[in-house]
Amino acid sequence: MDDQLPMLLGRDLDAAFERLVREHQARVFSIALRLTGNASDAEEVAQDVFMRAYRALGEYPPERIRELRLRPWLATIAVNLSRNRFRRHRPATTDLDDIARSRAGDLAAGDRDTPHHEVARRESTAHWQRLISALPDRYRVPLVLRYVDDLTFTEMSEVLGQPLGTLKAQVYRGLRLLRAAHDSTERKELSA
């Protein structure tokens, strides 16, 4: 989806900017949501990401814009802003309703008519969000980029400035930690 967009942005930023937001808003918002753990923070971060991108693109020469790799470039901004926000407002508890609402497209939380499978999905989302939020930054960010944003390890290396081997190890270790945390939660629920 990035094929023509850098060229269009280089030619007429104002005309192509809406397409940039339209094409990347879901992934930028998803990164922000999973790194901040809060939907309203994530929306502010996502808007800030695009505003910073807009200002930067306004200053770049067209040839630099044409060569931009938009996916990792936007992810870099999203990660940096989300990290700052997360550090400032680290949630003591994850806002489950917030996450559920954004996940379910503003379905009212606690709606009696909410189908059973939707409730189960909300609970699952909240569960995994809690586990991710509890991970150290060095595992949380690579996992979000790899699986939520679907970046390649090469793109992740561009975003985080780390060697491929380090990132692969962090992702593997992060998955193992999540697995352990998930199993531990399940054990607690069974014994409760």
Partner: peptide, 27 residues
């Protein structure tokens, strides 16, 4: 671990409907 990967992929969400119009206004 594949189950964990699938769960993480399932954490992708749609952007709020207000994000695009609000961003265009901000810009």
């Amino acid at each position: 671990l594949a189950q964990i990967e699938a769960a993480l992929r399932d954490l992708r969400v749609a952007a709020p409907v207000t994000l695009l119009p609000d961003t265009l206004v901000a810009a």
